[in-house]
Design a protein around this nucleic acid. Structure first.
Lengths: 226, 226
DNA sequence: CGTTGCATTGATAACATTCAATAGGAGTGG
DNA sequence: CCACTCCTATTGAATGTTATCAATGCAACG
């Protein structure tokens, strides 16, 4: 089997795409995939689990993260509705995934037949997801490697406000300060201080509800985000 | 043109693969692509350049990096022989690329016809490159977000020694301390101090040539790298 | 054999972390 | 509706790690 050998190590989805194969889609499987609802803080998969499925967020928010042996955590990304996560190169998941809020997910089999059928839309989405994941990761390396706490928070708030598409109004961050800290390479305290300082400087407003943030001066934030 | 619409935003290479197209390969173009030799420190492409080509390192080392407006630099990756770099999702390069040492490169057109011909090996390589790039980036986020200077250096030295496949012997790092610093999110001084400390602790040895490093205790390094 | 550029080392300062305490909101049960 | 509790966020003080500034050392090269 030359194809199998040649594509060894590649996810079946893409291997099939590259080989130009088109396996007929069983009538019982819909494009939308199965649904799954997970409670807030519940685990979706863990590092090392067999990566037989990948997911698309329908509603709610999901975090994917890695742990160091001593418990230090790095949150790779927060996945919002429409985002795909859980795609892996190898046989196993390289991240842990948990729901940040209660979340509804579309579950897809990793097998090519679920993708290479008449509808190529999902396959394209999968590739696009991989790429945007790569771009996000690259930008995030800049943030983690070279930006100050203030700049990290500014970047994060701006990105979230764009992704959540809250037109100028207040947004409610779905995640805790701890989650933000582990995403931005800071401690909870540093996050809190930086957020407070941005408020004092008038770039944002902080309603009594601690998860809410109002972007007051997007331009100044963008300047900080550099 | 439905295909063009459906694959909008995807790199032609992958769009063609997904669509199952197979454009004949002109006889004048070899699988190996064109060659290009660049001097040490020379620019290969810059952020914002049209991304018409991508590259494979034949010999030498290349760095890809981003800059902040005030000059802070984050080196995304060092590319060793066999590595592919310069692949982009959009029309423009999102990184700068420079030769670290004199380097020989294979230059490939981004157009699908250079890939989807009789030989699918390169196409597969391209996808694999994208994925391994993603995995590297994800691991690097853990390093940048959560590891100490010592741990970063340990991780880096171990990774380099593996990638350069120097069987137990000494390796000559191709890049300067400044490059290491900008890759690891540190300053030159911190890199120097951490390297020195690893030597004092007996985990590595530092021959008089400052680019040389001998891994003395790979296990202890791996423990540090966590 | 001096020059040049990078690396190392030293002293100090800044920023973020750590440890510790307080405050504030959300939810609960009376 | 109000106390009470719990949990998270905030704030404060001290510490520590890394950055910054400055000087020296060292190897490669002409």
């Amino acid at each position: 089997m030359q194809t199998a050998l040649a594509t060894a190590g590649l996810p079946p989805v893409l291997a099939a795409s590259l080989a130009g194969r088109a396996v007929p889609l069983p009538a019982t499987e819909t494009r939308a995939g199965l649904r799954r609802t997970v409670a807030a803080e519940a685990e979706i998969f863990a590092e090392g689990d067999r990566a037989g499925m990948f997911y698309k967020v329908v509603s709610g928010v999901v975090r994917t993260y890695k742990l160091l042996s001593d418990g230090r955590r790095q949150i790779d990304a927060f996945h919002l509705p429409g985002d795909i996560f859980g795609l892996e190169t190898g046989a196993e998941h390289r991240f842990n995934a948990e729901a940040v809020t209660e979340a509804k997910l579309e579950v897809h089999r990793r097998e090519p037949r679920a993708l290479a059928g008449g509808d190529g839309a999902l396959a394209r989405e999968v590739v696009a997801a991989m790429m945007s994941g790569l771009e996000r990761a690259q930008d995030h390396m800049m943030l983690l490697g070279r930006k100050s706490a203030r700049e990290r928070i500014a970047t994060f708030l701006l990105t979230m406000s764009r992704r959540m598409a809250c037109g100028g109004a207040a947004m409610e961050l779905p995640m805790s300060r701890t989650d933000m800290a582990d995403h931005l390479g800071l401690t909870v305290e540093s996050v809190s201080r930086a957020v407070t300082q941005l408020e004092r400087d008038g770039l944002i407003a902080l309603p009594p509800n601690r998860r809410m943030v109002v972007v007051r001066d997007a331009k100044a934030l963008a300047r900080l985000a550099a």
